[in-house]
Design a protein around this nucleic acid. Structure first.
Ligand SMILES: [Mg+2]
Ligand SMILES: [Mg+2]
Lengths: 450, 450
DNA sequence: AGAATGTTTATAAACAATCTA
DNA sequence: TCTAGATTGTTTATAAACATT
């Protein structure tokens, strides 16, 4: 879900075809081009369909369809917000995927004291977890000469210099105020974003390093127990706070040309080598019983039924997978373990190497209303939800305490709830690329309902 | 999702605790008590959280919390609607789970010509698939003397006598009008609902066997391509059509006492044997690295990492599971294969043994508005969405053609979209059991918004 | 015919919050 | 009263079936 937002928000017009989303992710996270199972595309499609924040539009010709982000729900997440390039852009650095290993695999310590990345971990942590976990970009364990001959890994930059880069994205709860903050960020070899060709304009959504109000709401908000507080969607104009536009280059350009020809913020987008030799799936056999992994939709292999030992073997979960021992012939060659000492593989990378606390922390900060109003890219404001930026959107009855209480809660969720209503009501009449007027706000929808 | 609705709707007050939902499902689908992995409870909780139609209420004491169904989204699905007991209720029949095997496993034919149930299939088909698949109740492959000494399987009843019982639940598309209807229902040994102690009142939601309008919209509705049409939520009073209350006993009783003491429609609910000897998980070890399957939340076994052969082995998906051969020591004893000739195991049970075409078909029919108005259980009407029953809720601009076009589409989805808004706005003031007034309608919410 | 695209359900899993023995 | 473990609740990830283009 986060990567899709990264991708779509990297475009000026904030819309992408599915194929373009694939490509963008593959370009920025080579993990997906090289090591990931083809099922990752299934996950992309799944997220596009499941989450209401992603809306599919049909081009005027009715042929192609673009995926967009509901403006009210768009937190304007960009890869820049998550990672700031810490290495020279000279070498055309390849951003590594934010590979977040499960907790267990991080404790793996080889005898020589180094922590190694368990490359066999297929299931990744959520890219932007909702909790207090920390996002840890980890170098992709792929041998550069094998997969990326032109890839020059921008080593080091391991120091704690990135501390100022931490951005809070809407903390879910107050972090138990008395508790000491997590250890200073390790800043483990962050991934690198592409070199932007277009100049950085003032970003529409400016995450800030505003301090979490740890006032009187400390226990109340956390005691909402197992249910998020749902903020009352207020129609008042939200106040954007704490301007600090010196942080990111979110790929949002001011542009007067946001129509079809100005689709690419990133210059290398059009020239797509769509058949990279490293992975060619040539096939003509059907999906179901065949061996080739053509389809990105996983499917059951065949009726070669295996009686699972769920109730047969009394207990024991691991014995199902233990049958295949670790060492596979080409395994280490494909996922080399060497030379990862430059990256901190602490036992708890989420907790120990914080880049930011949570994706919602970015929302916890807001942009200055005045600045936003003066911004030359006022037209783009409709592409970003100021309510979301302000973080919570306190209702009319919200006291300051309430406001802080509801801060940082129910962001994607709230907007997901409204988006299904807006789906297919949006863009009913207009079919052209004028995205500025195509977005119907919540108030418009309410009026429409009335 | 369907089973949760079955469970909750079986209660007069239409609310259940999580534990009660577990128990209800276990009681009505012994599969879950006996053969299912403990992860099924995880799925229940997942569905409760994910789908907005399920709303958690907190009892006035603040201790227990009940799960309810948003009235606007409640299609009043009950087990009766899906299955009508075809055998004598004398033997206290145990309903079997609607075990829907994947397509592949149904083609398994033993040399003696009979089709056998591949008990090893763990992943079930969706209980109520959205498509034209058919719901096939299949006898649970558990030896009755082993697990259910008092269980007398009501054999047979295999004839085609249940044909009239078929109910359409909101067909997603017109079924290609020229095509012949699916073969007559095989009526494979349907599961049996419990004997209701309370008298059956006129059900609030009456599914009907109304014919699908296969008129001029044949192509248009199907050409909504990959996106459901979202019906405009109309505030007009929906018209309930096609009264036919002779079909189900949906556990909805008229009742003048719908408060806390009248919680159970089913008499055997209170006396719960909560520690059945057939499954006792005695444990005191933590979850993570331990062997016991105590927790219903699955967890990775341990950092015993297995290097997956995704990129190592060139292709081939099935070789990952083929390592463990079929025959396990106690396997056949637990899942006997004999005596399943009474149940039709056609190669395509969904298509060949239709009970109904799709869950939405139930919605395609409506109840008579007049009848609903005269119903002595008018108070309960708020627990069922008449819009949903009417099937589509055509907006103000909908022509009759449009109405039929949007019929059967966007039901749970539409209501899920609205429910997140209502969550935690419901039941803000009142804390008592008066569920009749506790439900806030959409219009109330809209007014609240205004 | 097969691939791409889109929708929905199922299951695993991590994790937070609360409850209970 | 305290707390370890169980329960309950939320969210993300992945597989998979299936529909539509
Ligand atoms: Mg979507
Ligand atoms: Mg819910």
């Amino acid at each position: 879900m986060a990567m899709i937002q990264f991708a779509i928000n990297s475009r000026k017009n904030r819309r992408m075809t599915l194929k373009e989303i694939y490509t963008w992710i593959e370009d920025h996270f080579p993990y997906y081009r090289q090591v990931a199972k083809p099922g990752w595309k299934n996950s992309i499609r799944h997220n596009l369909s499941l989450h209401d924040m992603f809306v599919r539009e049909t081009a005027p010709d009715g042929k192609v369809s673009f995926w967009t982000i509901r403006p009210e729900a768009n937190r304007c997440l960009t890869l820049d917000q998550v990672y700031k390039p810490g290495c020279d852009p000279v070498t055309a650095p390849v951003p590594v995927p934010m590979l977040l290993f499960p907790n267990q695999s991080q404790k793996k310590t080889v005898p020589d004291g180094r922590k190694i990345a368990l490359a066999s971990e297929r299931r990744m942590k959520p890219l932007l977890p909702r909790t207090e976990s920390y996002l840890v970009p980890i170098q992709l364990p792929v041998a550069p000469p094998v997969y990326l001959p032109s890839f020059t890994c921008p080593q080091q930059r391991v120091g704690t210099s990135q501390a100022a880069k931490r951005v809070r994205i809407s903390p879910k709860v107050t972090q138990s105020d008395g508790a000491p903050p997590p250890p200073p960020p390790l800043a483990v070899s962050p991934p690198v974003t592409d070199v932007k060709v277009e100049m950085k304009e003032e970003p529409v959504c400016v995450p800030l390093k505003c301090e979490t109000p740890k006032g009187p709401q400390k226990r109340r908000c956390s005691s909402s127990r197992r249910k998020q507080c749902l903020v009352n969607s207020s129609h008042e104009e939200p106040v954007l706070l704490c301007p600090d536009s010196s942080f990111l280059d979110s790929g949002v350009t001011s542009d007067a040309s946001m129509f079809q020809d100005s689709r690419d913020v990133e210059p290398e987008e059009p020239r797509r080598r769509q058949d990279s030799p490293d992975r060619d799936y040539s096939f003509k056999t059907p999906i179901k019983g065949s061996i080739h992994l053509t389809s990105s939709t996983p499917s059951k292999p065949s009726p070669t039924v295996v009686l699972e030992p769920w109730k047969v073997t009394p207990v024991g979960k691991g014995n199902l997978l233990d049958v295949s021992p670790i060492r596979t012939p080409g395994g280490p060659a494909l996922t080399p373990v060497q030379d990862y000492t430059t990256y901190s593989f602490s036992s708890t990378p989420f907790k120990d190497v914080p880049l930011f606390s949570s994706p919602r922390e970015l929302l916890h900060c807001g942009a200055s209303r005045a600045e936003a109003a003066e911004s030359p890219i006022g037209r783009l404001r409709s592409s970003c939800s100021r309510e979301l930026l302000q973080g919570g959107g306190a209702g009319g009855t919200a006291t300051p305490a309430n406001r802080s209480l509801t801060e940082g809660l129910m962001l994607d969720l709230l907007n997901d709830s409204l988006s299904k209503i807006l789906v297919d009501i949006n863009f009913s009449g207009l079919e052209d690329e004028e995205l500025g007027t195509a977005n119907i706000s919540l108030s418009d929808f309410i009026n429409q309902l009335k």
